[in-house]
Design a binder for these strands. Structure first.
Lengths: 157, 157
DNA sequence: TATTGTTATACTCTATAACTATA
DNA sequence: TATAGTTATAGAGTATAACAATA
């Protein structure tokens, strides 16, 4: 006979546990479309805002610029983004979303409601709305930036 | 001017984002006590139940037995567990919690309410209780085992 | 001098396979 | 033949340091 650990019903652990599973499910959907979480982070960041240089992307997502090089290499090879020399700073590359990249972001976004349904299938609509509001409130309290995932960071701090 | 990505307020992303930050904060507290998340998983699993062999621990936590060897090595060196030859199967090692190991589990558990306060400092007591109940409901719906963290698994499935 | 992008090297973590001793 | 534990090797991912071009 064994009992559950005492921390099993703590907020810290529950959020971490449920969040990890959600991230796994999210990652599986992304993998089915042939894209990694990091690459999708770059893609959606470009989609949401203006064109950015590699350094700006690094700062925004918390990915080290050394690692950004290979990531953009792969994304450019996949045809999702294109590098263009910056007009204002000739050291920098502007990373621009291609039509294929924008289409991929749209395709992923289209799949998310289905994933949310899977995750919250034991909840009522009202409960889902309450949960979403509470999570947004916590995210704000923890000073998390909208749409920026902590695990994208190279440095684990 | 840039807007948030469309997925930023989805349950899948919010849970993943807030969960990742919670896991980071949890991990930092563990690190301050000199223990990794994996080692703590083993420790608390032993604390909650009966003595187990390395293979049983591997099955319970989803950590590959090859990796369990080094993990138990470190934990034994730290004085948290001890290996004893199983009486019923001389191939296997019973991994037993030492007094120091049990004390460490207790010390970590003692710190968790403070961490929960930090995470939910923008919530009322009622909101905290609602959130905890909703998360437990989701964890059940996703068939997560109490106290078992998905990220302990070696194989990312 | 400092910064952007890049490359090279080392280090860590994990996956796979094989070995031994028991069953 | 199968299983528990162990070890070795290779691969992926990351950190650190350095470099060339430009500011």
């Amino acid at each position: 006979m064994s009992s559950s650990p005492s921390y099993a019903s703590s907020l810290a652990f529950l959020l971490s546990q449920v969040g990890a599973r959600s991230a796994q499910l999210f990652g599986e959907r992304l993998a089915r479309k042939g894209i990694s979480a990091r690459a999708f982070g770059v893609l959606s960041n470009l989609d949401a805002g203006r064109t950015q240089t590699q350094q700006q992307l690094s700062d925004a997502l918390g990915i080290h610029r050394n690692n950004m090089v290979g990531l953009i290499d792969e994304m450019e090879a996949a045809g999702w983004v294109a590098r263009h020399r910056s007009m204002v700073d000739r050291r920098a590359f502007d990373v621009r979303l291609t039509d294929a990249g924008a289409a991929l972001v749209k395709a992923v976004a289209h799949d998310i409601p289905d994933l949310d349904d899977l995750i919250s299938r034991t909840l009522t609509i009202e409960q889902r709305n309450v949960l979403t509001a509470l999570l947004l409130q916590i995210a704000q309290g923890l000073e998390l930036k909208a749409g920026i995932h902590p695990h994208l960071s190279s440095t684990p701090r």
